[in-house]
Write a protein that binds this DNA or RNA. Structure first.
Length: 114
DNA sequence: GTCTTGACTAAGC
DNA sequence: GGCTTAGCCAAGA
């Protein structure tokens, strides 16, 4: 069904470990959606409030929060990330350091069970 | 039914 | 480093 893509996105985002971030494109790729990075944004936007999905670990390809600066979601995202140890430099995240590496993650923690 | 918009990205200037 | 263009596709008007 159509919701399947959204579910895959949410599941992929759920696999992102604390202290790491993933880009929209990366999530899209992991969810087997190819270039549909926008759909990741759509799925995250449609995310119910208070869900267990760590949506805050998803940032754009620049390592920056895509939400409008000053919005509640944006500040909450940044706060949560900083709380998890993600360092913001000039309002941006150094993707070379904090970018999620699925291969490493799976090697260390094992696949979620699929 | 078409047109616009958008939590995007990669490539080209 | 920034701006523009093109690609992709779903939801809202």
């Amino acid at each position: 069904m159509a919701n399947d893509a959204r579910d895959r996105i949410w599941r992929t985002v759920s696999r992102i470990p604390a202290g790491a971030v993933a880009t929209y494109g990366q999530v899209a790729r992991e969810a087997r959606l190819g270039r549909r990075a926008r759909m990741v944004g759509r799925a995250l936007r449609a995310l119910p409030n208070g869900s267990d999905i760590p949506w805050h670990r998803v940032v754009n390809a620049r390592g920056e929060i895509s939400l409008p600066a000053g919005s509640e979601s944006a500040s909450e995202q940044r706060s949560r990330l900083e709380d998890e140890g993600v360092e913001f430099i000039g309002g941006k995240i150094d993707l070379d350091r904090f970018r999620w590496r699925p291969s490493v993650d799976e090697l260390l923690w094992g696949p979620p069970g699929e």
